[in-house]
């Protein structure tokens, strides 16, 4: 347990020591700011009350681009620079390393999500009697769980490869595919399509969390996806020893 904490702290420090963490924060805030500004204008034009959803919905999608940028080097870079050898010969279990890496990424994105709270806070000033707090809470819970699963996928992918750019593209491709894998089920509802529908990460987010519905089924889905990825990441790290 202590090792996980030590590793995640160092991982977070690593993100904050280099430019990538700040660039990711900048990109997220810039795009959310544009979306926010547009939606405020629309609300004034049509005199409708804006909901916090228009801030939360794009975060999920933007994570597809941002998560790989942060997680791509988590194992791949350590392998490349050789520091993995130092960690793997220290009294640290392989799973502790993977979970620590994952937790470091989760902490980083948690910070990023907290930053985006500025938009709902501003919005709250514009709307009387304030925005729907329930939507806000369930939306952010959904984004958090989604992000935790995404980061686990990113760490797993990084553990497979020795090159962080390759890890970026593979993670990005996997995340994007998981985001739109339900597309065939829009055409026809066959048994195969309903499996695709279940695997779709956005299907556990848009209809439920984003609409203010918190269901155990979706929470379990994200947590078990993350757990599976961390398990696979550990297995892949162990496999490296046997290469």
């Amino acid at each position: 347990m202590r090792n996980i904490w030590t590793i995640s702290k160092r991982e977070l420090g690593h993100y904050l020591a280099g430019p990538i963490g700040y660039l990711a924060a900048f990109a997220l805030m810039l795009i959310l700011g544009l979306i926010f500004f547009t939606n405020i204008q629309v609300a004034f034009l049509y005199t409708t009350a804006p909901s916090p959803q228009f801030i939360i919905a794009p975060i999920g999608f933007l994570l597809i681009f941002l998560v790989p940028a942060i997680t791509m080097g988590s194992i791949a870079d350590e392998y490349k620079t050789g520091t993995l050898e130092t960690i793997m010969t220290a009294p640290v279990r392989d799973w502790e390393l993977i979970v620590g890496k994952w937790l470091g990424g989760v902490f980083f994105f948690l910070g990023l999500l907290v930053l985006t709270w500025i938009f709902p806070l501003i919005l709250n000033q514009f709307v009387t009697p304030g925005i729907d707090q329930g939507l806000l809470v369930s939306g952010y819970l959904g984004v958090f769980l989604l992000m935790a699963a995404f980061v686990a996928i990113g760490v797993f992918t990084s553990s497979l490869l020795n090159n962080s750019i390759a890890a970026y593209f593979l993670t990005f491709a996997i995340l994007l595919a998981l985001w739109m894998i339900s597309a065939p089920s829009q055409i026809a509802t066959t048994a195969g399509n309903s499996i695709l529908n279940y695997l779709d990460f956005s299907e556990h987010f848009y209809p439920t969390f984003l609409s203010g519905v918190i269901t155990l089924k979706d929470i379990v889905f994200y947590i078990s996806s993350a757990a599976l990825m961390l398990f696979l990441g550990t297995a892949s790290l162990e496999a490296r020893r046997w290469k």
Binding site: R2, N3, I7, R10, H14, T81, T86, A90
Partner: peptide, 23 residues
Amino acid sequence: PETVPLYSDMTIRGYLLYMGNLR
């Protein structure tokens, strides 16, 4: 190790503390 792998974004003290904490 032969290649002396170290984290270039850490200070000497920070790195040794990290390794010490892992132990």
